[in-house]
Nucleic acid binder design. Structure first.
Lengths: 209, 209
DNA sequence: TGACATTGGATAGTATGACTCTCCAAACTT
DNA sequence: AAGTTTGGAGAGTCATACTATCCAATGTCA
């Protein structure tokens, strides 16, 4: 298909398509002369990925470029794949390096390959940011939350078991996390409301005194 | 204290402080003449809130303004408080209104006051966005995740039980969610790695074939 | 075959958000 | 009295993510 059809079918304007091509978010179409190129389903799929990362994941264009490059040249091992996905999804740098005491706390969770993975680093950074803002997460709380997230992760990793290519598995892991992170956080809020309703009653208005 | 001291102690530059004052993120200091005003600990605390929301929560300035207004004029009821907190923390509008089928799915979770809370709406929107991007979350998965998040929420709401003012409780709920959402997501990734390691072995590199 | 639309590619411009800078006169400090 | 600091207002800056314009070379269709 030509660029105009790609634009129509993807819902992305031609100027934006050209921008994505320039920025390396979209691989070039097959050139058929100086002023003609054709695009195919791989471009449509890529655009869906890009729009998901941008709209839902709020990733910057630069981060999206990292993601598509990783998907186009994925690591070979299953485990490295997950690391690459988590690396791609790391939150924007808020406060910087994790505090030493945050790293120590990871040891208490007895995880495999503790402080070496992107996820562990992410956790240490999140704990550091919370501590800096005066919020402490108790060790028991952290352990309990980890158990809860383990139950969630059981569901997650099952999805990556299929015999697909590394690039496909990586894309799957990234898109899956980007799309379901908001679901998970919304479920947390819903659960908070449920617990609150149980404790304080479901009546529409109650004064706190 | 004067603005220069407020700047030093908070780590926020004077121009930015003036900007926050203009934008209503920071309440005015006590005027003591045309060119003098004093600030106190309430300003320091407010700045810590604003910086947390901006740096960790990535909230826009406009959203932060909503938050501080809500904290300054909070709803009276305990339950409305949580709703106000969730309203403040709603994700940026990605795809818009939730699909009808997403709303139907909430009914299957047998929650109190299902489709009326900000959190339920957030969940419906997240499910809609996922579906639009071609990702379906199975009902059993959703139910399982809800159970997991309920365990998390038990810890959360306990923190709001204290006999504090509504404004303080609201601030607590908002800051708590903003600071621990990243912790929770990082724990999810860590758990994914743990599960992956269990299934595929902990060896540093394994080819997928 | 020739007018006219489309394309790839390059360059420049725009909109938004979040600051940051500059001024000014009126205090305050010394 | 000289010099610094302040509150307040307005304009300027910077980054990000597009969006618009131009151009010559095709392609298409009457």
């Amino acid at each position: 298909m030509r660029i105009s059809e790609l634009s129509e079918r993807s819902g992305v304007t031609i100027p934006t398509l050209k921008y994505y091509l320039r920025e390396g978010l979209l691989h070039p179409g097959e050139l058929q002369g100086a002023t003609r190129a054709t695009y195919d389903d791989s471009h449509l799929e890529r655009l869906r990925l890009v729009r998901t990362l941008v709209d839902v994941g709020r990733l910057s264009i630069e981060r999206v470029r990292e993601v598509v490059r990783a998907i186009d040249a994925p690591p070979a091992g299953r485990h490295e794949l997950l690391g690459a996905a988590h690396e791609a999804l790391r939150p924007h740098p808020a406060s910087g390096a994790p505090a030493p005491e945050a790293l120590e706390r990871l040891a208490a969770l007895d995880l495999p390959e503790c402080a070496h993975s992107p996820a562990s680093l992410q956790l240490a950074e999140a704990l550091t940011a919370a501590a800096a803002a005066g919020w402490s997460v108790e060790p028991e709380t952290l352990a309990r939350w980890l158990e809860a997230m383990r139950a969630v992760a059981e569901t997650d990793v099952v999805a990556e078991l299929g015999e697909v290519s590394p690039g496909e598995a990586l894309r799957y892991a990234i898109v899956g996390n980007v799309l379901t992170d908001p679901v998970l956080l919304a479920l947390r809020r819903v659960a908070q409301e449920a617990v609150s309703a149980e404790r304080f009653g479901t009546g529409p208005t109650r004064s706190p005194g």
